[in-house]
Design a protein around this nucleic acid. Structure first.
Length: 369
DNA sequence: AATCCGGGGAC
DNA sequence: GTCCCAGGATT
């Protein structure tokens, strides 16, 4: 019996036994691994998209405690979910999960079991569908996330760019051929665990790796050369000014109405055009820009006081530099999308950048309130 | 195929 | 500080 795998792929049976044995001995004790409930598995996988275990874990605990199943989440307003999600980023995940909860609730509260049907739900792509189908239902389908991509590319010494055809196809075929057909959930988690703990992007711990003897990249001595990824687009610097206006213990905030972060509250301010920046990206005249922006956008008249510490915020390919200024209002009203906000208001949530700026300015705020 | 999501961890 | 990692949707 000859398997129709890539020529570079070793006989997978011993390899599977070694990795599964390693996984049983070394797997981290993660909260979603004890559940087995498909909804909990789905929630964990959505949270883990683009997010590390350490960042996702507290959110998983809170969200599952508050909304233990699809029907419970479907019954909750989206704003409440977004408020719980605040700080984790990639808020589209939350909106799509809410839509999926509604779809599932309408079909009786039970998630579809098959990979192909999970794939049709909002926010569930090939990776998440495969993870849920294999972990919760034992379907023999390989889940390919960034960890798996790295482990498999190294194992087979894949020199193609794994994000483009045909490298992507070769990698998917190898991942599927390696999959332990009778323990697909454990297998998928084992590969991801290996990628997360030993087979890391930099400084992988090859001496401790149960697959070292099978690994083409290790044999070639160039493990860190895999996976081959496309060149990154360089980050774009953006300079903003923002006003911290406090009155009677409340802060003037603005509801963002356009993406990104639509539906979140932020400190009112503006992005500065290049003409208003020095060659190294600092505002030529931050206070003047702030006064002009809030006058034009909201008919506010400001008196700008002192500058507060520069806040740097890196998100995807943007490098934001927010220059906050304490200011007072000499005329104008907080009409929508502006509103007076107090720290006890949790919904809608603040953008992460605004929340951090306010947190670091807290001593000044208290003096003024 | 390319771009976007207003993040964050490792070093 | 710098580097660099990453699922799904959209067009």
């Amino acid at each position: 019996m000859k398997s129709s795998t890539s020529p570079a792929l070793p006989d997978p049976r011993k390899l599977r036994r070694r990795l599964l044995a390693w996984y049983e001995a070394r797997a981290r004790d993660l909260p979603w691994r004890t559940s087995g409930d498909p909804w909990a598995v789905l929630l964990s996988e959505i949270l883990l998209q683009q997010t590390t275990v350490a960042a996702a874990t507290p959110y998983y605990e809170r969200l599952l405690a508050r909304w233990p199943d699809a029907a419970a989440l479907a019954a909750a307003p989206l704003d409440e979910l977004l408020a719980e999600w605040a700080g984790l980023g990639y808020y589209r995940r939350a909106r799509l999960l809410h839509r999926t909860a509604n779809v599932v609730a309408e079909r009786g509260g039970e998630l579809p079991r098959a990979h192909a049907e999970l794939l049709a739900l909002p926010g569930i792509g090939p990776y998440t569908a495969a993870a849920v189908a294999s972990i919760a239902h034992g379907e023999a389908v390989a889940a390919v996330d960034g960890n798996v991509e790295r482990v498999v590319a190294r194992l087979i010494g894949l020199r193609d760019d794994v994000r483009r055809q045909p490298g992507k196809r070769r990698l998917a075929q190898a991942a599927q051929a390696l999959l332990a057909p009778r323990r697909p959930g454990d297998w998928n988690q084992a590969v991801m665990e290996l990628g997360a703990t030993l087979c890391k992007p930099r400084s992988p711990d090859c001496p401790a790796c149960p697959l070292r003897v099978d690994c083409v990249a290790h044999a070639r001595g160039d493990v860190e050369a895999y996976p081959v990824l496309p060149a990154r687009t360089p980050p774009t610097p953006v300079t903003l000014v923002a006003a911290v206006i406090v009155r009677r213990g409340r802060v003037l905030l603005r509801l963002r109405e356009n993406a990104p972060n639509a539906g979140f509250l932020e400190l009112p301010g503006a992005t500065l055009p290049e003409e208003q920046l020095t060659p190294d990206g600092a505002p030529l005249d931050g206070p003047a820009a702030l006064v002009a922006a809030l006058h034009d956008a909201h008919a506010l008249k400001l008196e700008v006081r002192e500058a507060l510490p520069l806040h740097k915020h890196a998100i995807t390919r943007w490098r934001l530099r927010v220059h906050p200024f304490r200011a007072t209002l000499s005329s104008g009203a907080a009409r929508a999308p502006l509103r007076w906000w107090s720290a006890s208001d949790s919904s809608p949530p603040l953008t992460t950048a605004s929340r951090r700026i306010l947190a670091s300015a807290q001593p000044e705020l208290l003096q003024l309130s």
